[in-house]
Design a protein around this nucleic acid. Structure first.
Lengths: 195, 195
DNA sequence: CTCATTCTTGAGCGATCATTCAAGTTGATT
DNA sequence: AATCAACTTGAATGATCGCTCAAGAATGAG
């Protein structure tokens, strides 16, 4: 009996995610969203409630995809350490994405003040990613790939710093060769942990 | 014969820098600046021309200070590599600054689109910092501190990735011990290049 | 067809944005 | 005291911000 919806929630979210990722929350106006989603303000608000809520949903979707990709890459490698190295190498191919830098990191820096609404979510999603790194590094240690002296938590943090640094650096206007070399250097450093 | 100015350009710039660093360009309104500089719009525009120009001057000032600190730390160490390691260790004390993350990096991510006005300047300032790293690493190589096989340019990039990653990570709501351990781990990695 | 339900529209809301400028204030010089 | 240049003020500008809501359009059921 209802009028058929012309857009699915998922598709709209995808388009919003792309915009927010590229431009950030503050720099993306409702007019931008109207254009990208091909929806009028009334529809957007009926569907998503507010710009901020739409952003939060986009963030969650982004993080979900990022985690899924990490799991996919890790699952393809038997070695826990090898899986993480493969993930690092994959970041070299980031150049043809919507944006080189991680959306979580962009949001973290945009919402510097802690009282900002989306900030806790950003924190939680970054923490989850780091935790996954640490878990995998703990596995690597327990199967003897890396020294028992190493602390998986410290290594997980260290890996997140590398990922953040690499992807943020890739946002600079440098040529692809530089990025490829960088990825290779970082990947080799992690390989070197193998004992 | 003129009326005595109540604010010096330098002091105003300092206050603006602090605001822009913490909040970013877009999230800092003229009302914010009016409050922080204790100046009315007319004065601000008479002095700095536009919000964007004020931001650009603040950026330059930030970069100048950052470069000066790098030079200071490096000058205090005889060893070129040691100077860079000392700089990395110093980043651990970043926690009591205006903002943990580098203002250049925050700006790089905020002005993702290349057509943004301040973007080329951000690129140039980041490139200058990296170049300085590479120069110092070239010295380290020429005095035999690190292997002749290593490429100072690649290492300079690698160091900038570490610095970007570390300072951006420090923006997260993690405890100081985590940051201290991270700085130590990164510093030790660079020490390990010493042959 | 009529109706009820769901979705979409877009004009318009008050607030805030960066910016301008005519008028006011100040202080040294005459 | 009068003058004038330098500096500051703050009301006002048009644009744009996120958002609302009454009205319109489209569908399936009766």
């Amino acid at each position: 009996m209802p009028r058929t919806a012309v857009h699915t929630r998922q598709e709209s979210l995808e388009k919003a995610l792309e915009l927010f990722w590229r431009q950030g929350f503050g720099a993306t106006s409702l007019k931008d969203l109207e254009g990208a989603l091909d929806m009028r303000p009334g529809s957007i608000y009926a569907t998503f409630g507010s710009k901020e809520n739409l952003f939060r949903e986009a963030l969650d979707r982004y993080a979900e995809r990022a985690m899924a990709e990490l799991e996919r890459v890790m699952a393809a490698e038997k070695s826990p350490l090898g899986g993480l190295v493969a993930y690092v190498r994959l970041l070299g191919g980031v150049r043809d994405q919507t944006c080189q830098a991680c959306m979580l990191v962009k949001s973290l820096l945009e919402f510097g003040e802690r009282e900002q609404a989306a900030r806790p979510r950003v924190e939680a999603l970054l923490a989850r990613m780091e935790r996954r790194f640490s878990e995998r590094l703990a596995e690597a240690r327990s199967v003897g790939e890396i020294s028992a002296d190493l602390d998986p938590e410290r290594l997980g943090r260290r890996l997140q710093v590398d990922v953040i640094g690499l992807r943020t650096y890739a946002q600079r206007d440098v040529d692809d060769r530089a990025i490829r070399e960088l990825v290779e250097d970082i990947a080799r450093e992690w390989e070197r942990l193998r004992q």
